[in-house]
Amino acid sequence: MNIEKNELNDFSLVLASSVHDMKNSLGMLLASLEDVMAKVNSINPECKNDFSILQYEAARINSELVRLLSVYRFQNDRMPINVDEHHVIDLIEDQIAKNQPLLTSKNISIDIDCDDSLTAFFDFELLGGVINDALVNSSRYSRERILIVVRAIDEFTEIAIHDDGDGFPVDMLGLVDDKTGVNVEFSERTHLGLYLAMRIARLHKSGEVCGQVFINNNSLLGGGSFMLSIP
């Protein structure tokens, strides 16, 4: 039994290492793809949409690899967190820039309502991944608009992403308590991105107060709304 357990641990370690290498290689591929797009689009603009779709699919695979690596780190208590003070607008604009080709190809406009001077304490990379996933998800279901609203309320900084799509499915809404943001027990029907967003949010603490994630269909644009709240 111990041998089987050790073998499983070894396999998990090898798998995590392989995922990390694949993620790095895919990151290099995405960077090269951006260079190719810049050159080809100026010569043949008709290829722009095809390249945008290719970039989106590659970015989606990269996000899935990041999620797998995050699950491994959470399960083995190896999730690093580097909290520092950052301007929230930098976090938002950084993720929009990464997804601008996708947004442009889908003819989705995006607006930001955020005080440029607002700062908060958080891990820029971890929260960037959460916002990126939420933004990509919104772009998949939006018709033509996305609105990001950032507010400092009491001891929390709230980042809400609103879309004008059809909203979240009812069964998905049931995965999150609309008052505490706490997820039900992780199972096969729980969306991995949402699960990781909750785990990352709760890594951000101030005393006994933890970060939270909320989803609802009360979007300011009539669709779904994803909100990240950190102390």
Rank of each mutant, 00 (worst) to 15 (best):
A16P: 04
D113L: 09
I230C: 04
D123F: 07
V150E: 02
I112F: 00
L194R: 04
D154I: 05
V176T: 11
I3V: 15
F11E: 14
M22W: 06
M198W: 03
L30D: 02
R140D: 12
N82Q: 12
D116C: 01
D84M: 06
R189D: 15
E125F: 04
N216P: 03
N49C: 05
E208R: 09
K98D: 01
T190S: 13
I89M: 02
G211P: 10
M198D: 10
S17E: 14
E85H: 08
F51I: 07
I159E: 01
V182W: 08
L135R: 01
M37T: 15
E4I: 09
K179P: 00
P169V: 10
L118V: 04
D77H: 14
S105N: 10
E93K: 10
I159S: 03
F122A: 00
D164M: 07
C210L: 09
G167T: 05
E64Y: 11
Q75M: 15
E57G: 03
K98M: 08
L30Y: 07
H20E: 13
R202A: 15
L173H: 05
L118G: 01
S139W: 05
V83F: 00
E57T: 15
S12W: 11
V213S: 04
R78N: 14
F51N: 05
L26Y: 09
V213H: 02
H191F: 08
L102A: 04
L102F: 15
M1S: 12
I131H: 00
Q75H: 13
E64M: 06
G211E: 00
V182R: 11
R199P: 15
L91M: 05
L15Q: 11
M1F: 11
L126W: 04
L33Y: 07
E4C: 08
H191R: 10
L54Y: 03
H87Q: 10
H191N: 14
F168P: 06
L221E: 08
D35N: 15
M198K: 08
C210K: 08
R151T: 05
L91T: 05
S25H: 10
L135A: 04
G193K: 03
A134F: 10
E144S: 13
A197Q: 01
G165N: 07
S12T: 14
D10G: 08
E64H: 15
D115A: 04
S105I: 03
R199S: 09
K48G: 09
E185K: 15
C114W: 06
L147A: 04
L126S: 06
D123N: 06
D163L: 06
V182T: 12
E155W: 01
L228E: 00
V209A: 08
S70I: 11
R73P: 00
S17G: 08
S42F: 07
N49W: 05
D84L: 09
I81E: 13
D177E: 12
L68H: 04
N44M: 15
N137I: 01
L30Q: 08
N218D: 12
Y141K: 08
